Simulated scan of single mutants.
Amino acid sequence: MMKESEGVNADDPRRRFAEECRSSRELYPEMRLSQDQLARMLRTSKSTIGRVETCAGPIPSNLPPLLDQVFSTDGLFKRLYEEIVAQSFPAQYRRGVALEREAIVVRQWSPTVVPGLLQTADYARTLLRGGAPRASEEEIKAKVAAQLARQDILKRDAPPDVRVVLCESVIRRQIGSRDIMRGQLAALLAHGAKAAIRIQVLPLDAEAHLFIDGGARFLTGPNHLTLVCVEAYRTVAIIDDPEQVREAMRAYDGLTGEALSTRESARLIRGQMEALT
């Protein structure tokens, strides 16, 4: 267990996760579980449980719901894990990540790169390494894990509806090696085949529009209110003014109308993927 002197705040969700795991294991109703016994129940390794309980390294994304099931904790570990994921991002991005995890509909326009919700590990690693050339491998590994953890919302029994419009340049711009880009395009096709996800490509000759110089996410929460997240270099703005949100939504609707159909978009993505073989 990490000590206060090591600089871990008692309110830190990562530490709380570790403490809840250890206390739930030691106070298990039938008997005190060892790390090895808990690992067997979760079909993981003792070393994984040891790392979780000492705050060493990332938490496997499949572990929180399994802990909730074994300990009957009514989603406690899942909620803590979501807090951990949100806090792994810079402060200015955390609210957007938290809103995304609660959204019932996610709409996104991206003029430059594949959105984080749909990125492969290799594609994400290439982007993150390019954006932080002086970062250590461990730092990059942690950032990739945090990025991929955002995709947990797509694995839920009732995932949000995801609607993505990509500029054609996103499909044609090679990020990393040909293999990395081909893998990313294949992942887009796989995502687009799911009932909850719709991917469209906006042709390069489309008319100018409100978001031509930047990306935007439209997050609709359980209360059916929509907020707009607009990101730029190390900054993010969350727009909640109703009139501005309506204006942004009209612009997004215009993009979906100008974009290729999902079938035509898949054909374009497949063609670009095959061109990289």
Rank of each mutant, 00 (worst) to 15 (best):
T256Y: 05
G214L: 06
R107Q: 07
K155H: 15
H209S: 10
Q200V: 11
R134T: 13
E6Q: 12
R250P: 03
A10P: 10
A195V: 15
T235R: 15
R178E: 09
K194D: 07
R134N: 13
L76A: 08
R246W: 11
I171N: 03
F218I: 05
Q200P: 07
R125H: 06
V105G: 05
Q37W: 06
L148M: 08
L66Y: 01
R25E: 07
M41K: 13
D74A: 10
R16V: 12
R134L: 12
P111F: 07
D12G: 01
E138L: 14
L128N: 04
R43N: 12
H191P: 07
V201M: 04
K3S: 15
R16N: 10
T262L: 03
R163H: 09
G131M: 09
L148Y: 00
S72R: 13
R178G: 08
F89S: 05
L127S: 02
L276I: 05
T277E: 15
Q244T: 09
L38P: 09
A248G: 06
I239Q: 03
V164G: 00
N9C: 13
T48I: 14
D179A: 13
T112K: 05
V8S: 06
I84E: 05
I59S: 07
H224E: 15
V8W: 13
E19N: 11
G50K: 09
L260C: 02
R172Q: 06
V113N: 05
F71K: 03
R94H: 12
F218A: 03
V236S: 09
E19H: 09
F17L: 02
I49T: 00
M249H: 12
S24Q: 13
A237K: 12
G176K: 02
P222M: 12
Q244C: 05
G7F: 06
G214Q: 10
L99F: 04
R267E: 14
C55Q: 08
E4W: 15
F211Q: 05
E274Q: 10
L260T: 01
E139D: 10
N9Y: 11
S47G: 08
A266I: 02
E19L: 15
A142F: 04
N62Q: 10
R22C: 09
R95L: 14
V85W: 00
G215Q: 05
D152S: 11
R22D: 09
T126D: 09
L80H: 01
L189E: 01
Y123V: 02
T48F: 07
L188R: 00
M41S: 10
V105L: 14
A103D: 02
P111A: 14
G257C: 13
E274M: 08
I239V: 15
P242Q: 13
S136E: 02
Y233P: 10
P242G: 11
I269C: 04
A142M: 09
R163G: 04
D241W: 00
H224Q: 13
